[in-house]
Design a protein around this nucleic acid. Structure first.
Length: 413
RNA sequence: GGCGCAUUCGUCUAGUGGUUAGGACAUAGCCCUCUCAAGGCUAAAACAGGGGUUCAAGUCCCCUAUGCGCUACCA
């Protein structure tokens, strides 16, 4: 049975790159009806950031990348590593230097494996290999040691991780050999590069996953975007829900070059998902959760036409945060120049003409034709915004003809 | 420097020896239209360079260049 793990170290923010590794592990596990576990690799005591662990949990749970079983922390498995060090000592594969324990790497022959990406055989000459530390002088294990011991003990079948670990894989393989353990399948994912090149990192200005949430991105949009950064399903399809992804996911369809992060497509995809959720009537809940305490926006949820508002706002949004601009101070124009004068003209015109909600636009057209005021201007005078929701909707939202006219009059007072 | 991995439109990519090199985002134009979007249509836009192998190469091999990674008692 397939079993994979996501093994972050709690040393900083979790960004797009980290979450993609988690996603691919998750998709692969679920696609193969296997297990997906979480292991916190907190062996570098100096670099641990206290909030990091929570942000990992929070990010995974927001995105719905649920793991099986309980979380393992390497810091709580010190005895296990010690025991395994002992085994290697007995095989005379370890020596001590400066209070650290080193593994004796073979210096002849070569170490190779067939990587899950591209099924390419990767070969390293052992003459280029150096001994490495298993247990540090602070008695914590190194990544290279703890990782191998845990992956074996946890019966991990596929090690799916970033390709920055390719160079240390020979070390891992030699450890497996030393213990006489079967090798897992190694799958080294290309790394995501920042816009200015260089592996995506905090220093490169990478945003944390939770920042994306704050910025109004949907988990559906983010996940869809992240999945496509290096993976394309055989089926020619780009807009994918998580359930479609796990149906289609396949390690063989992962690209082998490092993609560069460009959020333009994320913005588009997020808009697509906003519209999709709006159609499914699921957008209101998200907006309510975000804006229930924001008075400039929360009036929407009490408005009898809230569905209309949300529906017509959806096609104008890239992120949830765009909603605020669309609905705050709706119908409250800030006049400049002779805006006020034109507005009073418009009010008298609207009062002198016969019209109802259905032919609101027709009467505006007439005004536009007879007075030569263009529709951009009319739109602004009536909505208080340069652009946004359609005027007929606005008329309804503000309470119909009478309320609408009253609002206009208040504006020019 | 050494050792690895990579290189198709600006970006994400399809392509597994014979294609007018396809799609998506972004860009531009047109249509629709009450503003702005959304939507529809169209356009421009790529095989890093050089050698091989082959009747034929984006696809296979080699070299160069470039990018990225590792070269830690970081992961």
């Amino acid at each position: 049975m397939v079993k994979v793990r996501f093994a972050p170290s709690p040393t900083g923010i979790i960004h797009i790159g980290g979450i993609r590794t988690a996603l691919y592990n998750f998709l692969f596990a679920r696609h193969s009806s296997g297990e997906f576990v979480l292991r916190i690799e907190d062996t570098d005591r100096k670099r641990i950031v206290s909030e990091a662990e929570d942000s990992i949990f929070e990010s995974l749970s927001w995105l719905g990348l649920n793991y099986d079983g309980k979380v393992e922390r390497q810091s709580q498995r010190l005895e296990i590593y010690k025991k395994h060090l002992q085994i290697l000592k007995e095989k005379d594969l370890v020596y001590e230097k400066d209070k650290a324990f080193y593994f004796k790497m073979p210096k002849e022959g070569e170490t190779s494996w067939v990587d899950g990406i591209n099924n390419k055989k990767i070969v390293f000459k052992n003459e280029n290999q150096e001994d490495f530390v298993l247990i540090k002088s602070d008695s914590y294990p190194t990544y290279n040691f703890a990782n191998v011991v845990d992956d074996h003990l946890m019966k991990i079948t596929h090690v799916i991780r970033g390709m920055e670990f390719i160079s240390s894989t020979p070390k891992h393989i030699q450890l497996y050999n030393a213990f006489n353990w079967d090798l897992p399948v190694f799958v080294h994912l290309p790394v995501i590069l920042g816009a200015e090149k260089g592996k995506l990192s905090k220093r490169e200005g990478a945003k944390s996953i939770l920042n994306y949430r704050e910025d109004g991105y949907l988990k559906e949009g983010l996940l869809n975007f992240v999945a496509l950064l290096g993976w394309t399903p055989k089926k020619d399809k780009e807009i994918l829900s998580i359930s479609e992804m796990l149906k289609l996911f396949n390690l063989e369809d992962i690209n082998n070059a490092n993609p560069k992060l460009d959020e333009k497509k994320l913005n588009w995809l997020n808009g697509v998902w906003i519209r999709k959720l709006a159609e499914e009537k699921k957008l209101e809940e998200l907006l309510f959760y975000k804006y229930q305490k924001d008075e400039k926006v929360s009036w929407v949820f009490k408005n009898p036409h809230k569905d209309l508002i949300i529906q017509s706002a959806a096609s104008r949004m890239r992120t949830l945060n765009d909603f605020e601009n669309l609905v705050s101070n709706l119908g409250k124009a800030k006049f400049q120049g002779d805006d006020k004068k034109i507005t009073s003209d418009l009010i008298s015109f609207l009062e002198s003409e016969k019209w109802e909600e259905e032919n609101f636009i027709e009467v505006l057209r007439k005004f536009n034709k007879e007075r030569g005021v263009d529709f951009k201007k009319i739109y602004f005078l009536l909505s208080g915004k340069k652009e946004g929701l359609p005027l007929p909707n606005l008329l309804k939202i503000l309470g119909g003809k009478a309320a609408f006219l009253k609002n206009l009059k208040d504006n020019i007072k």
